[in-house]
Design a protein around this nucleic acid. Structure first.
Lengths: 200, 200
DNA sequence: GCAATTACCTAAAAGCCTTAGGCAAGCGGA
DNA sequence: TCCGCTTGCCTAAGGCTTTTAGGTAATTGC
């Protein structure tokens, strides 16, 4: 009987499509086997286990996102670059919600270090070249931008902002305006002051 | 034989503890039954299905978070209030990672409207009373704050900032400084300008 | 103390994960 | 061309989780 021609790459790709269709949580070895019209056990020649499969999809999504980010950043600087990268994340999450969810998978440290995740941090840092930030403020700003991008996109995707005025597109552009203004005018550290501190 | 005394409330509470111990994704009807030393089917008298159980835990977490937020905000205003609420989210996520993950569960709209989620939005809006923002900027700011809180906490919890200098506590206080500065100096909308727009 | 309720049980079917071992397809070399 | 080896996909099987149906015993209220 003819072989299906399974590969780790093909599994990752099909798994990513499946994730976008039914949600990342519903991606299962069984479902993927059905999609290839193959018995479940056959996948275990290519994939260690269910978690390995999800890791593959995560890595694929991180690569795609990083590629899109790099393309969007090329030739841009300052606020233009900021908006471009921000939109890459948001657009990707809307086009490929399953893949975006996959990209949030917690990778073990070595896998994370070898993944495209590092390119993401580099791209965010590259944006800050258009603003006058020195260390350690640059790192603080990288983390802030990452938090806003991820937080906004995931809340919006989860329906957190749903159906209330003003529309989320308007808020999104205003948030980018605000981040741009903030980066151009990054505040000096406040004194110890009365601000409540975390107890941990 | 003696009865276990199961209740929706007790199930939610035990489920929350279980989530903190093994992770929200590993919370299962079976595991919870084991914890009560009871057969699995018995839980189905109290809980519709697995998703219903997770919803219960989510609602519990949202309540707890809102209660902590309200307590932290009492008697505070301005940056002090901002830092207090921010720390509530972060501290809660660190103390109760499983519950925090549960709070991110996507609720169906009516459940969401009846949940403590609305109190969260109100609290964030209350903070903005200490800053001079009018609609629609106030809503934009509410969404931005929500994004930063959620995004930062979830990235930090997922290890996104792990083991790199400067430490995350320093970044966190600087991020709050930055948000405070931004809210005190909220920028006017930029013109149409050259900024890249989302294609969607 | 008895009836009615309800809490928990047994039983069973279905789906997913994972491992072990078998057959055959397709490749390399003679 | 034919043979053997590798490897891709298979069958079989055990274990865990979900969910439903229907039974028995504990508790509540009169």
């Amino acid at each position: 009987m003819a072989r299906a021609g399974l590969t780790r790459e093909r599994l990752a790709r099909a798994g990513a499509e499946l994730a976008d269709e039914v949600g990342f949580d519903e991606v299962t070895v069984s479902a993927l086997a059905r999609r290839f019209d193959v018995k479940v056990a056959s996948l275990y020649s290519h994939v260690k286990n269910s978690h390995d499969l999800k890791t593959l999809i995560c890595l694929l999504a991180l690569e795609e996102l990083a590629d899109r980010g790099a393309a969007a950043l090329a030739g841009r600087a300052g606020k233009d670059a900021l908006a471009a990268l921000a939109n890459v994340y948001r657009d990707y999450a809307r086009e490929h919600p399953g893949r975006y969810a996959a990209a949030q998978l917690r990778l073990d440290p070595e896998a994370a270090a070898a993944s495209a995740g590092v390119r993401h941090a580099q791209m965010t840092r590259a944006i800050l070249r258009g603003y006058n930030l020195t260390e350690p403020d640059q790192t603080h700003a990288v983390r802030l931008l990452g938090s806003v991008f991820h937080g906004y996109v995931s809340l919006e995707l989860g329906g957190g902002f749903s159906h209330s005025a003003p529309d989320t597109q308007t808020t999104w552009t205003r948030v980018i305006d605000a981040l741009d203004a903030l980066l151009r005018n990054w505040p000096a550290p406040s004194g110890p002051g009365p601000a409540h501190r975390s107890t941990s």
